[in-house]
Amino acid sequence: MTTSNPFLIHSQENVVIKNSDDKSWVFEVGKDGNLWADFLQMTDDLKVVVNLQDVNARCQINCAYLTNKNNKINIDIKVLHKSKNTTSEQHIKGIATDESRVSFKGIIEIPKSSQKCDGRQHHRGLVLSPKAKIEATPQLEIWADDVVCSHGSAIGPLDVNQLFYLQTRGLSESEAKKILLSSFLGDLMPEEFSDTIQQWMDENA
């Protein structure tokens, strides 16, 4: 089982990276800049701060977490719309099993002068075992009126209706679960991580 927490930065047009290490990142996205980064967290904490500094800066942060045993991880993602006309999107999805604990905190902050911003964040967590825990605090801090902002967060088990549907098609419960789990992350994570994810699924699903 791997202990790495891979990341991939797809796009960093006009982005200054001021990170200290792989667990803690500060991105500054300049005018017309574009940041697209993916993170996969399994054992380590992650802290990401994105500052959208100038007009038309945009970012997409994707993060998946897969935790097992008694691992405890904290994921902190903060997007600051420091300039007007900036756009952000965050997708966070994860699975916690065994006795692992995940604490996810996500903030979208839009200060007064940053009109016409669009900030979105989606989180979905699956709790797979009785002793696993997921905590989520998605936070909106909005001080400008002409903005579009939303967040959604859902924590729960696998959808029983989906499970049932697959079973009526002849799959056993465990096979059905496996399919749902491996499709849970969808195409959130890049091809490069698929071996790591597959290995985790094989060992834990």
């Binding site: 967590g125 709790v127 797979l128 075992s129 009785p130 696993a132 825990k133 997921i134 905590e135 989520a136 605090t137 998605p138 909106l140 939303s150 967040h151 959604g152 967060s153 859902a154 924590i155 729960g156 088990p157």
Partner: peptide, 15 residues
Amino acid sequence: VMKCANETATIEHEA
């Protein structure tokens, strides 16, 4: 703030 310590419970939040 959403805290889930039961694997059959569901929490859904939208804002």
